[in-house]
């Protein structure tokens, strides 16, 4: 594991110096009317509107979500998710919450491991994603210990100290108030339980970072247009990744809501990072 020491301000104000990549805007400073604003990709929008705007994006991509994931990551997202499961320490009888679970890649695996005495809850704020996930898993025969819940990560509708493991894979960056969501996850996690956040992050080498910028701002929207007939959603994806907190910032955010022994593993050069924190 390599721990990035890049300060947050550098990450958030970094000018994209390679060809035609839009500059990353400054975060609001947190006073007066700025408090009611948040980012939606590189745009500043009203906080109350972000959830519905994100929902529109995922309504649009839900049907082609899996095939786009495979294409965009060249299948590597499956290995990132396997790594997440390997770090989960999940066992038979555990209760697992797969938050922003999308089309259920993690939930399917967890369902097999926890067995009939365990419980897996696949939760997503987006109904369209949840439907695609439910149909996919039922067709695969993954039933019995798996429940589907449409839920907002900021206000999880579960009792305190309920889950042994919570995962959120490629979902946290779409949440409007990340601190509130992390606090909500902390609340529903059992003492001794762990949270795993798999999310795009900051590449660790300058060269990889430039290549990644070129890929995500030029190639990605074109692939989105070609396969899902939707370039805007994939433009948002690229922008939202750049606006997401880097490794150290997210680690600090987890610690500030109470998580302990918080660590992160960079995957594929830091393009993705897995953060892990425990509740004691």
């Amino acid at each position: 594991m390599s721990n990035s020491q890049v300060p947050q301000s550098e990450h958030k104000t970094k000018d994209a110096d390679s060809s035609n990549i839009p500059p990353i805007p400054q975060e609001p400073t947190g006073t007066g009317e700025d408090d009611s604003q948040t980012h939606f990709g590189f745009k500043q929008v009203d906080k109350t509107k972000k959830a519905s705007m994100v929902a529109d994006v995922f309504h649009s991509v839900a049907a082609k979500y899996d095939i786009m994931n495979d294409m965009m990551s060249m299948g590597i997202h499956r290995l990132w998710k396997r790594f997440t499961i390997d770090c989960s320490g999940v066992r038979a009888g555990h209760k697992v919450l797969d938050l922003a679970g999308g089309t259920g890649d993690l939930a399917a695996k967890f369902s097999k491991i926890v067995g009939e005495k365990g419980q897996v809850v696949l939760a997503d704020i987006n109904n369209a994603m949840l439907k695609v996930g439910r149909d996919k898993l039922r067709n695969k025969g993954v039933v019995g210990n798996l429940e589907y819940v449409q839920a907002n990560a900021e206000m999880l509708p579960f009792p305190d100290n309920y889950f042994d493991v919570i995962t959120i894979a490629f979902g946290l960056r779409n949440v409007t108030d990340k601190d509130k969501a992390l606090a909500s996850m902390y609340r529903v996690l059992k003492p001794g339980g762990r949270l795993l956040v798999l999310e795009f992050s900051k590449p660790q080498s300058e060269m990889l970072s430039k290549a990644y910028d070129l890929y995500s701002f030029h190639l990605l929207p074109k692939m989105g247009k070609l396969v899902a007939n939707d370039s805007e959603s994939y433009q948002y994806l690229a922008e939202s990744i750049r606006m997401h907190p880097d490794q150290e910032t997210l680690k600090a955010m987890m610690e500030s809501v109470g998580f302990e022994q918080t660590t992160f593993h960079n995957l594929t050069g830091g393009i993705v990072a897995l953060h892990r924190g425990f509740k004691f």
Binding site: I85, D86, C87, G89, A92, K109, K112, I113, G141
Partner: peptide, 15 residues
């Protein structure tokens, strides 16, 4: 890990 299929996990060094 056995169920109606076999899932193969990797044990992490710190686990």
């Amino acid at each position: 890990s056995f169920s109606d299929q076999v899932d193969v996990l990797t044990v992490m060094p710190d686990e």
